[in-house]
Design a binder for these strands. Structure first.
Lengths: 149, 149
DNA sequence: GGAAACAGGACGCCAAAAGTCCTATTTGAG
DNA sequence: CTCAAATAGGACTTTTGGCGTCCTGTTTCC
């Protein structure tokens, strides 16, 4: 439905919470984040693992461990979060170089013409930071194109 | 996955074919469209029914009936097609006035802040016409904002 | 009157998402 | 040195929604 998956949605919320806590220099663990976000612990854990694999957060193992932001929320564009959970941002499967996937590739009247559209969506999502989505008070701004908020 | 549904994808292809045929003043029926599109007849029929309900095409019943475009492809923005098949364009369920859907509504740190993002996506999709996606030779242009193609 | 074609809905299958859980590994504290 | 806390990684089950198909009714031309 042109909707983000729930995990992606959760990720934004979790990142927002992490931003609040980490701004105070603290490291936050899963139980605390789950409580603050109103989500189930296993779900939050799953979200954080994916965020860690994408390099958006840093996991600190061992007792007194937890998670920490790799960059400030101002430096995390929405497109990065979405890509981590949903893969490359493209409205159709037949993106640029993807050949062979479509059976009617030869006669498709829209072949190759989705690329500008996908680029527009990507640009729009790259122009919004997680900080703008969270209620984060304006901290130091990143060098990023900013959407007309 | 931030992907269009297959039906939406088919719809663009079918509209493109309809544009070619209708430019010659003809009315096209389901079997012919299915053949030209390389899709199964029941699928094409389903697509056309939805397009007709959305007012994008006009169904002519009875023998020698078929489908005809309600407007030229230049006047059909991509957003109209997507809305017909996927509902309102919004990345999250908690859009503007939608209250009560989210259980953690009260404490959500991103509450209400998705709206500008959704608007940006909508604008981007409204700026592309089906004619631009199809290989349609440039006909008379509609009064529509056009994406940087 | 009959055939061709759309209108509208209902049904079943399947794939992907979503949520949960288990085990291994790491690390700090006592 | 041992234990507990916490992440890493994967596997598994349930559920949801897309997708394709089909059936019945209605309309219209020949």
């Amino acid at each position: 439905m042109l909707r983000l998956s729930k995990l992606t949605d959760y990720a934004i919320v979790v990142l927002a919470r992490l931003g609040q806590a980490n701004a105070a220099g603290r490291v936050t663990a899963v139980p605390e984040l789950a409580l603050a976000s109103g989500l189930a612990e296993p779900t939050v854990a799953k979200v954080l693992k994916i965020l860690a694999q994408a390099g958006l957060v840093e996991g600190l193992r061992g007792a007194r461990g937890g998670y920490r932001l790799s960059r400030t929320l101002e430096c995390i564009p929405l497109s990065d979060v979405i890509t981590a959970f949903e893969g490359p941002i493209a409205l159709t499967a037949c993106v640029d170089g993807a050949a062979g996937g479509c059976e009617s590739e030869g006669c498709c009247p829209v072949r190759g013409r989705w690329d500008p559209v996908n680029r527009a969506i990507r640009d729009a999502l790259a122009g919004v930071t997680v900080a703008q989505l969270a209620n984060t008070p304006p901290a130091r701004q990143c060098a990023a194109a900013v959407l007309n908020f």
